[in-house]
């Protein structure tokens, strides 16, 4: 229980800081809008192709902007060596991980709430799918992305070139999740048989649980050391 309280304390520290400065969220929103803009040059939005690329774009903007936030989340702890401060505090190291997952998840979700509608508007896309299923898929997929992403951000933060290292480590590991998320999103947006989307959702949920457990136990090893 105290793990969760500590995790929330750490998450709240990051979030309240973000509320004050709004720097990371602002950057992420602007960046994802720019990605949408670039893609609208690449795929002509007036064309019929739009329908085919929308499900992929939802996830592309999430991942691209999410990586920006993930990079920050552990680098900021290296200023003044705060991470050592956290490690010398009487808390379970895993609560640092949970706290960061929580904070990152909330930040990325907030960015999505803004950027996905922007995507639909700029691509002039009429949303006809089942909104609740769509939201569920987005949440489960994003959660998996954050679970693995936060873990690897902590790992990459040990390197000097962590900003470059993180995507290289993260994207191959995300590939099964992204396949499932994009396919699930496509099925929901095109109003196809929901039961197909449910099987993708199950795959994502299994991925989330498996990696949450693995990362939770392995995080201690990342925190150890000089």
């Amino acid at each position: 229980m105290s793990i969760l309280i500590d995790a929330w304390t750490i998450a709240w520290k990051d979030l309240s800081n973000e509320l004050k400065t709004k720097q990371t969220i602002g950057m992420m929103v602007i960046f994802s809008s720019l990605v949408i803009l670039v893609f609208s040059f690449a795929f002509d939005p007036t064309n019929n192709m739009v329908k085919a690329v929308i499900p992929g774009l939802v996830w592309l903007i999430t991942i691209f902007s999410g990586i920006l936030g993930l990079n920050r989340s552990f680098l900021s702890e290296h200023e003044n060596d705060c991470l050592t401060g956290l490690r010398s505090a009487p808390i379970d190291p895993s609560s640092i991980y949970l706290g960061k997952v929580l904070a990152n998840f909330i930040v990325v979700t907030v960015v999505q709430v803004i950027s996905i509608p922007v995507l639909f508007i700029l691509f002039d896309y009429r949303f006809l799918g089942a909104i609740l299923w769509f939201m569920l898929i987005v949440i489960v997929g994003t959660f998996g992305f954050i679970i693995v992403g936060t873990f690897l951000a902590a790992l990459a933060a040990n390197a000097k070139n962590s900003e470059m290292l993180l995507p290289v480590l993260l994207l191959p590991l995300l590939s099964p999740l992204m396949i499932a998320a994009v396919q699930g999103t496509r099925i929901v947006l095109e109003n196809q048989d929901i039961s197909d989307a449910i099987s993708w959702l199950q795959l994502m949920a299994a991925y989330d649980l498996l990696f949450l457990a693995a990362c939770f136990f392995l995080f201690e090893f990342i925190m150890e050391g000089s």
């Binding site: 520290k13 400065t21 200023e79 401060g85 956290l86």
Partner: peptide, 8 residues
């Protein structure tokens, strides 16, 4: 190091 958060 101080272990303090610069932004707080």
């Amino acid at each position: 190091e101080s272990f303090l958060y610069n932004t707080l």
